[in-house]
């Protein structure tokens, strides 16, 4: 019975998410949309507490209390002009959380579950990229990190190696705890190499793209658990975020490809 109720709560939460985003795209209703999306999120969180066999409830509550205090503190104390970097910071936290879930899950996953393994690797790689990329984007907007030129091919090579290793880990049919950490490390480095060469003025577009990536990791985590609220919520953010990225680039009279690859191109000449 309780399982059915959880599922229905998740279903309602998804509807609230969609409604929330929908309302958020009109100036008159934007605040209400935010509130509706928040109520959906609270419903999803409360429902997940009723998952059968849930242990460590106190530990979960402590972590959530710390996160709530920290989140509210940052959100209230940061200056209005520093908002984009804060969004980037929060976005990185979401990506990191997804990567951490992937790391814990890898320990429990039977090696012969190739499909789930692939989903898990995607979760790890994209989450790590989103985390390190968001941190660099935040640093750049804050003016702490200067532009550094990194060869385009170097970045792609790192990503290619990470993906190849991930495929190898799944195909090997054996637990590879060390290699998993290597994959995460490479993905983190790729996130750095991806965002470093992009100019500060283009950062909002990049943050939007990273936001979309975090959505995708939330969705892959949802696939891992057969959890529809994460799947649906994540993909919603993934696709809405991608469209938003394109719209933002268009509003700046730039193309996304231009933003992402021009600065790489100049570096690759050397």
């Amino acid at each position: 019975m309780i399982l059915y109720i959880i599922d229905i709560c998740y279903l309602v939460a998804v509807v609230l998410f969609i409604l929330g985003i929908k309302l958020m795209s009109h100036p008159d209703t934007a605040r209400r949309g935010n509130g509706i999306a928040l109520s959906g999120m609270i419903l999803a969180i409360v429902a997940s507490f009723f998952t059968p066999g849930l242990n460590n409830i106190i530990l979960i509550l402590v972590a959530m209390a710390l996160g709530t205090v920290g989140g509210l503190y940052f959100a209230k104390s940061v200056k209005m002009t520093a908002m984009p970097q804060l969004v980037s910071f929060f976005n990185g936290m979401g990506g990191a959380a997804a990567a951490l879930i992937g790391l814990v899950e890898y320990g429990d996953l039977p090696v012969d579950e190739v499909g789930k393994g692939a989903v898990l690797m995607a979760s790890l790689v994209i989450g790590s990229i989103s985390f390190s990329g968001s941190m660099i984007a935040m640093g750049k907007l804050q003016g702490v990190i200067k532009d550094i030129r990194i060869n385009k091919m170097l970045g792609f090579t790192i990503l290619a190696v990470a993906v190849a290793l991930a495929v190898y880990i799944i195909a090997s049919g054996q637990p590879q705890p060390v290699l998993v950490y290597v994959v995460v490390l490479l993905a983190l480095v790729y996130g750095l190499a991806f965002v470093y060469p992009i100019g500060g003025a283009d950062m909002p577009v990049v943050i939007s793209l990273l936001n979309s990536l975090t959505g995708v990791t939330a969705a892959t985590t949802g696939l891992l658990y057969d959890n529809k609220v994460m799947l649906m919520g994540g993909i919603l953010v993934g696709s809405a975020g991608l469209l938003l990225t394109l719209l933002m680039a268009k509003a700046m009279n730039r193309s996304v490809a231009n933003i992402l690859f021009t600065s790489f191109g100049t570096a690759a000449g050397g």
Partner: peptide, 16 residues
Amino acid sequence: PLMSGSNALSGVVIVG
């Protein structure tokens, strides 16, 4: 604001 709002939604990973 929409970017920020959808970013908050990607926090749904909290369920996981």
